[in-house]
Design a protein around this nucleic acid. Structure first.
Lengths: 219, 219
DNA sequence: TAGATTGTTAATCGATTAACAATC
DNA sequence: TAGATTGTTAATCGATTAACAATC
């Protein structure tokens, strides 16, 4: 039941769906479900049974023909693929409170997320934080000494331009870049995701619908 | 130079890239650039000149052969497509501070985003907020009376199950669903994006690399 | 004019869905 | 056993990239 060691890389579309599968399975465990069919997973995720089987197939054979999947086994297997039990350590680098703000999102309490510190100089007065809030000049030594794996970059667009140089001094494994600017850090896995973009994609779709209505004369 | 009224729907891949184009063009305006080539945009975005031209082509002909694109014109045109000047109004619904926390992200100060209120019962003690923080029982009347367009749902997974009924009572245009749960709201455009998922996708990729290294015996 | 760069069609690539033999 | 459901291959669909004529 251990994940296959495929030579192929995981297709990016599959990789980005895995966390959703993981959440879905955690929910099923909460409901004390023991087995689940690909068709059920598909329904929960608004996807397609074929896709579920196809996706899981990249990692091995987790299911049993005529039965389905064992919920706990599949949950553990996907957890392993996601690296949840490697317990990567993380810090947040924000400004004007954006760093501390992120600690209030449900994310930070999840299994597999080990937040060690927040760097956010001017946050102290405006909100309380249950993680240590440190000064920016401690960023490089702190991350180096504590072998931090992941940095969550939540500074604004303007400041982010100046961050690259500092980040190059830290032996990170990955950066989750929420700043909106483009980072180039050789050897470091960088995932960009600008929260703004999702909001405006939603606006765009709404606006499209409105335009269509206006064209058709619906008042 | 006004966007074409194509009958075709915007392909989802294109729609999700538009906000990035928009950000990119704003940066160029900040640099007082007047014109830009598709190849330059491509480089800034880590994409492909062909793709830029192909994408823009869905909306009309913004460029000039042999010259490129006028930065300001293109910026305005994409703004129109995104619906920025429709100035959709929004509220946030969070809990345990997650709602107020979102107001600290740079998002909320952008043009085209009109945040009107935050509903987050137990946030008041932990942080200050520059937007009105209201009690949850005012959610439905407030949104209805003020004709709120978009609701940003930032409550936790558990609570979100109970939100649907309340949300159905509000005539919203769209919901940006950060809760991780699946919402079904007939007639309302819903965009799901669970911040957790991006973090774990990053972990997954890092973990994959580590596995590959371990296989090859790199210590 | 000549060089540059678009709009647009065609070719390629990857991702999704359908179908079904294998089998518990 | 018979029914159910997987793993897996094949077919379809959509998205990306390449190529080039049109033209400023």
């Amino acid at each position: 039941m251990t994940p296959k060691c495929r030579d192929k890389e995981i297709p990016s579309a599959v990789l980005h769906r895995l966390p959703r599968y993981y959440r879905c399975l955690r929910e099923l465990i909460g409901q004390d479900r023991l087995r689940v069919r690909s068709s059920e997973l598909a329904q929960m995720l608004g996807s397609n049974a074929s896709q579920i089987r196809q996706d899981l197939h990249y990692f091995g054979e987790f299911g049993q023909v005529g039965y389905g999947y064992n919920v706990k086994d599949l949950y553990c297997a996907i957890g392993t693929i996601l690296g949840v039990n490697r317990n990567y350590t993380a810090v947040i680098w924000g400004e004007h409170g954006s760093g501390v703000a992120l600690t209030y999102l449900p994310l930070m309490k999840l299994r597999g997320v080990s937040l060690r510190a927040v760097f956010d100089s001017d946050a102290k007065e405006t909100m309380t934080c249950s993680f240590p809030v440190l000064e920016e000049d401690r960023l490089v030594p702190f991350c180096t000494q504590n072998k931090i794996d992941i940095l969550i970059l939540a500074v604004g667009r303007e400041k982010s331009a100046t961050c690259s140089e500092l980040l190059k001094q830290i032996p990170l494994r990955g950066v989750w870049n929420l700043s909106g600017a483009t980072l180039s850090l050789p050897g470091v896995t960088v995932h960009d995701s600008c929260p703004t973009d999702r909001y405006f994609a939603l606006c765009c779709e709404i606006s499209e619908k409105q335009r269509a209505q206006e064209r058709n004369g619906t008042p």
